[in-house]
Amino acid sequence: MKFEIFVTLKKEVLDPQGKAVEGAIQNLGLSNISNIRQGKYFTLEVNDSNEEKATQQAEEACKKLLANLTIEEYSIKKIG
């Protein structure tokens, strides 16, 4: 079972990289674009045909390694 995972900084955590990217976007003249936040994207496969159990294992990977819950949050979506 295949999942995609997004890891992003929590709202209250400053994202200086996102800010720098936003500055460059503004320099391109794309003045309607704002509030850029940078994050991470993962895909992974879980060798378990039970969707609930597979999702739980993906969650565990997020909580234990892929995201640092002090500063980040994650979302999981089944894609195959």
């Binding site: 955590v13 400053l14 200086p16 990289q17 720098a20 640092n68 002090t70 500063i71």
Partner: peptide
């Protein structure tokens, strides 16, 4: 140490990158 949880918090990119 922050990643193991032995110390609280986290270390982010320097504010001026």
């Amino acid at each position: 140490l922050t990643e193991t949880g032995l110390l609280p918090g986290a270390l982010l990119r320097n504010s001026k990158l």
